[in-house]
């Protein structure tokens, strides 16, 4: 069912007998604690199941179903409303690509907040997946002197241009290579994802990303239940917890169902373009064929699938 680019991690021999060594150790600890408390409460079982859960890539279809059901139950208990957690597989023959027209972007930040609402980022402490950089038209792309905190009555400000930056979904991502536990990887459709339940919060990926695209939940993320987007994806916008890394997923919960990412839909100037790089008739291919596109920090050989261009 679920098809992933990265082969499952080698499974120790113990699994043939029912449990891995890690699980056996943990189960032993829990058995001791359970014997001491004997509460018999179902949330204790859920907490233990969560604690011993495998990496997303190692889950069998049956296990995955159980995990998703458990999460929906836990989220319902936490937020008091129904939250749908899916694990939609990549579509065959699709490699996602994104293009952004710098000559049209006006720096209004509607994409930033559209993303926050769609992807359940923490409102307090504040987490934004998209950073909009303001730079001088005269100097061109000058990341060192870019300003992410500009604040004007109306945009665009005279003499300035704007460059929104989020995850570049590299074909050769440095962030996934440094993860010590295999909690982040590139999917078959090119989306770089994170298993928030496997992430240990070491933040190696944050230091490896040359684009500053990854965010760490230093505090307990908070969203009021009525602001929560209830249509979520395991590898995407399901609510996160403290101590894990998150970032743009091209709105995996939307694009794998054929929808455009939220930032594309909310952009008032149509600067954001999205589609299938393997479809010669897609608008993204039209842009690659007809516009002079560039990628950020090409000297690093990260091969982003996020392209910038000047359309005018």
């Amino acid at each position: 069912m679920i098809d992933h680019t990265v082969a499952p991690m080698p499974v120790p021999d113990e699994q043939a007998e029912g449990h891995t060594r890690r699980e056996a150790l943990i189960l032993g600890l829990f058995a001791l604690a359970g014997a001491a408390m004997t509460t018999g409460c179902s949330s204790d079982k859920d907490a233990m199941d969560e604690f011993v859960q495998k990496n997303f890539k190692d889950l069998s279809p049956a296990e995955l179903k159980e995990v998703l059901a458990r999460m929906e139950k836990q989220y319902k208990a936490k937020y008091g409303r129904d939250i749908q957690v899916s694990a939609t597989p990549p579509i065959e023959g699709v490699l996602f690509g994104y293009a952004l027209d710098l000559s049209r972007c006006i720096g209004c930040r509607r994409c930033v907040y559209g993303c926050v609402e769609e992807n359940n980022q923490s409102r307090n402490p504040q987490t934004h997946w998209i950073t909009v950089l303001e730079m001088d038209k005269e100097k061109g792309v000058d990341l060192q002197n870019a300003d992410a905190y500009y604040n004007h009555e109306t945009v665009p400000a005279p003499g300035k241009f704007y460059m929104p930056v989020a995850c570049q979904h590299c074909e050769n991502p440095p962030c996934t290579k440094v993860c010590p536990v295999g909690a982040t990887w590139k999917e078959k459709d090119g989306i770089v994802v994170i298993d928030y339940n496997w992430c240990i919060g070491c933040r190696s990926c944050i230091s490896a990303c040359p684009y500053g695209a990854r965010r760490f939940n230093w505090g307990e993320p908070s969203i009021s239940p009525d602001e929560l987007n209830p249509v979520t994806e395991y590898l995407g916008n399901r609510p996160r917890k403290r101590g894990v890394v998150e970032k743009c997923t091209f709105c995996i919960q939307r694009v794998r169902k054929g929808l455009y990412p939220k930032c594309v839909e909310v952009c008032p100037v149509g600067a954001r373009k999205f589609g299938n790089l393997l479809d010669p008739d897609s608008e993204i291919r039209y842009i690659l064929d007809n516009k002079r596109v560039f990628i950020l920090k090409d000297e690093l050989n990260t091969q982003p699938k996020f392209f910038y261009y000047y359309g005018l």
């Binding site: 929808l259 455009y260 594309v264 008032p268 373009k273 589609g275 608008e283 842009i287 007809n290 516009k291």
Partner: peptide
């Protein structure tokens, strides 16, 4: 460029029904 989806905003579905805006909408 608009017909190709480069100019203007496409919404809806990237894989099936793309929706477009008329020029005067923007």
């Amino acid at each position: 460029n608009w017909k190709a989806g480069e100019h203007g905003k496409r919404t809806g579905s990237w894989s099936s029904t793309k929706q477009y805006l008329l020029c005067p909408s923007c």
